[in-house]
């Protein structure tokens, strides 16, 4: 079932927009040009945008207007870009960030 609201009782029909393709973690998807990347991903039913740098737990959009930085992804190689503030362009290469090696931790038990 599509999540796109194509017909709205008050806002009317969805205006025709140009479809473009992009990749997210090496898979190809279709979205509308200049819609937010977060919206394009959600319309493709993608909710997990990254994994937490330290815990590795999955994360997605939270505030959707740039305040919380939960939706940060890498776009065309640039890291830490907010998906909710980025207009989608054709051929965009989007990648999730994953868990990082944790430099600060309690090594005592594992190093013994």
């Amino acid at each position: 079932m599509t999540l796109r609201v194509t017909d709205h009782p008050i806002l009317g029909k969805l205006e025709k927009k140009k479809a473009v393709t992009f990749t997210f973690n090496d898979k190809q998807y279709t979205g509308y040009e200049d819609e937010s990347l977060a919206a394009a991903l959600l319309a493709n039913e993608i909710r997990t945008l990254r994994h937490h740098e330290e815990s590795g737990s999955s994360r997605g959009i939270y505030c959707n207007i740039g305040h919380c930085f939960e939706c940060r992804v890498s776009i065309n190689g640039k890291q830490g870009v907010r998906a909710c503030l980025t207009p989608l362009k054709g051929n965009m290469i989007v990648e999730s960030h994953g868990k990082l090696p944790t430099p600060v931790r309690d090594w005592r038990s594992s190093d013994e």
Binding site: L3, R4, T6, L14, A39, G60, Y62, I65
Partner: peptide, 17 residues
């Protein structure tokens, strides 16, 4: 899980539920 405003913008502005 998202803020209520996030759902509003997604639905009304981006037209994605």
């Amino acid at each position: 899980v998202m803020s209520i405003g996030a759902a509003q913008i997604m639905t009304n502005v981006h037209r994605v539920k």
